[in-house]
Design a protein around this nucleic acid. Structure first.
Lengths: 173, 173
DNA sequence: ATCGTTGCAAACGTTTTGCATAAGG
DNA sequence: CCTTATGCAAAACGTTTGCAACGAT
């Protein structure tokens, strides 16, 4: 069963990078460059995946799609195959959380990292230029050529901390 | 099939933290505190897991253990159950890489992070005090209570870079 | 004697595959 | 018309579970 991996997304904190092409345009360019085909399923999946800015896994995406028989139905294998292509095309980034693959927008979206609250299972994004500088400086010391990184800080988010404190104070009464 | 997730371990760079108890002693204390039992399988698995300092997954550990019928055989479910206990007991830390759970020593071992070379699939450890300070500073800004973190820097390690350069130079001849 | 532990087999949840049919170029 | 893409069913993969027999306390 899919766990709650929804994003507390803060529009003020993380601005989108302006891009010249829409995700669909970019994907179609990618398809062309590889001799792959524009299909209705791929077009529809780009649309669906970029209609919300949230982390999601394959099941959450499937839940959001039309059921079998309905128009625009896309089968489970095709969803998995297409997610892989989105990653190859640079549209999505994939990471693993609690044994499942989680996807997030990559194209047109700035580099960022995550807090993961172990109480409410929520991923929250943050950006730190310093972190990237430090990463590159460490990598230089080890002569490691950085392609990307993945940082998840686990702990308890502010809301969950407050919720706990309130309850603790109530308990005392 | 298990991929190569072996560690390039640099003894000079990462010193063990001196500890008063052996891993086995610590685990037995944990068992006692929870009303769990000392068994031959658990004792043997502590021994095996701490006989090498390397990252490993369940399959790699099973490969290292005696086969069915041989003395000290431990079944697959018991290995999984015990790895979970080792994590609970603070002996091991678990993370996910390429869709499988990977374990590393935690007890008596300093906090560190990893480079992951996408060419040779090798994890290399590094330590950075600055990184921990920066992590805590960022978390403070977001009022996030840090429990731990996981950072993996992906890219290409020095050896693989050199290997590529050599080949490229040969190609030119 | 009690209750946690083990091994077995079978299930699980996620992701991938082989294959026949459909459809894009 | 050729080749890629799709949907289906089934397999694969790592991991977990129910249960009866076993063994530690």
């Amino acid at each position: 069963m899919a766990e709650n991996t929804s994003t507390e997304y803060e529009p003020a904190a993380l601005e989108s990078i302006p891009v010249s092409q829409t995700p669909l345009e970019r994907f179609e360019e990618y398809l062309l460059s590889r001799g792959l085909r524009k299909t209705e399923q791929r077009r529809y999946l780009v649309e669906q995946v970029f209609s919300r800015h949230e982390h999601f896994d394959a099941d959450q995406l499937l839940d959001q799609l039309p059921r079998k028989g309905a128009p625009n139905y896309v089968s489970r294998p095709t969803v998995y195959r297409t997610l892989k292509e989105f990653v190859d095309a640079g549209l999505l980034r994939r990471f693993e959380l609690n044994g499942r693959s989680v996807y997030e927008h990559d194209y047109g979206y700035p580099e960022h990292d995550h807090f993961y609250c172990v109480k409410c299972n929520t991923l929250t994004e943050f950006q730190s230029e310093q972190l990237v500088l430090l990463r590159d400086s460490i990598a230089r010391q080890y002569r490691f050529r950085v392609r990307s990184h993945r940082l998840i800080i686990q702990g308890i988010c502010d809301e969950c901390s407050r919720r706990n404190n309130q309850r603790r104070q109530q308990d005392r009464v």
